[in-house]
């Protein structure tokens, strides 16, 4: 069975490398050493989204039963998105679960993830806190997601207001990522974030 897997991965690599998207640096695949079971992927944040100009690294694990079972994919780059866990990077996407079909490829997976960044599905959330913010306060969600892109994925949009709040927490001895998570989860309300961290 892993014979088909190896063969498929080899071909899919070539497919991705030759694809238009790869030429435009929008998707990328890299083998982790010589083991085809561990692949690193990368997708560019789609334009006109809070993820624009960010590059998001993915961990792709190929099961022995590939392509009859889906690859296991998660975000390595921290991301603020309703369908991705802000803690573990786990992804909630139908084609990585029951909607997977053997005829799908890694290219399809990468493009679908890119599409997911452009169109979140808050009613089927992976991260309830993020999904709630997405639904209740869309503007704040957008600026938070954009800030995370800048901090973790090399995005270029700055936000001095958020920076200031982070620094306030850093001065109190809070670790940087912890400060970011707490403030993002508490709608950037300093008092609530402080309560969450120190309670």
């Amino acid at each position: 069975m892993s014979n088909i897997a190896a063969q498929r991965i080899q071909r899919e690599f070539n497919e991705v490398i030759k694809s238009d998207e790869a030429q435009k640096f929008s998707i990328k695949l890299e083998m982790d050493g010589s083991d085809f079971r561990h692949i690193n992927g990368e997708i560019a944040g789609p334009p006109d989204t809070p993820y624009e100009s960010g590059n998001f690294k993915l961990e792709i694990k190929i099961p022995d039963t590939y392509p009859f079972n889906p690859p296991k994919v998660k975000f390595l780059t921290k991301i603020w998105h309703p369908n991705v866990s802000s803690v573990t990077g786990a992804i909630c996407l139908d084609i990585l679960k029951d909607q997977w079909a053997a005829a799908m490829t890694l290219r399809v997976v990468l493009l679908s993830l890119q599409a997911l960044l452009a169109a979140a599905e808050p009613d089927d959330p992976q991260d309830a806190v993020v999904a709630n913010q997405y639904k209740e306060n869309r503007a704040l969600f957008t600026s938070t997601a954009r800030y995370w892109t800048t901090v973790h994925a090399g995005g270029k949009q700055l936000n001095p207001d958020f920076d200031k709040k982070i620094h306030t927490l850093l001065d109190l001895g809070v670790e940087k990522h912890q400060a970011l998570v707490a403030l993002s989860a508490c709608d950037w309300n300093l008092d609530r974030a402080l309560e969450q961290i120190f309670s």
Binding site: F68, Q99, A101, A102
Partner: peptide, 26 residues
């Protein structure tokens, strides 16, 4: 041969009467 491997994988997971075509979204 792909069909049989596919069926093998699905049946091992306990899926029998609900095996769908291997094509995407079919």
């Amino acid at each position: 041969s792909c069909w049989s491997t596919y069926f093998d994988v699905e049946i091992t997971q306990g899926i029998t009467t609900r095996i769908e075509c291997m094509s995407s979204h079919c």
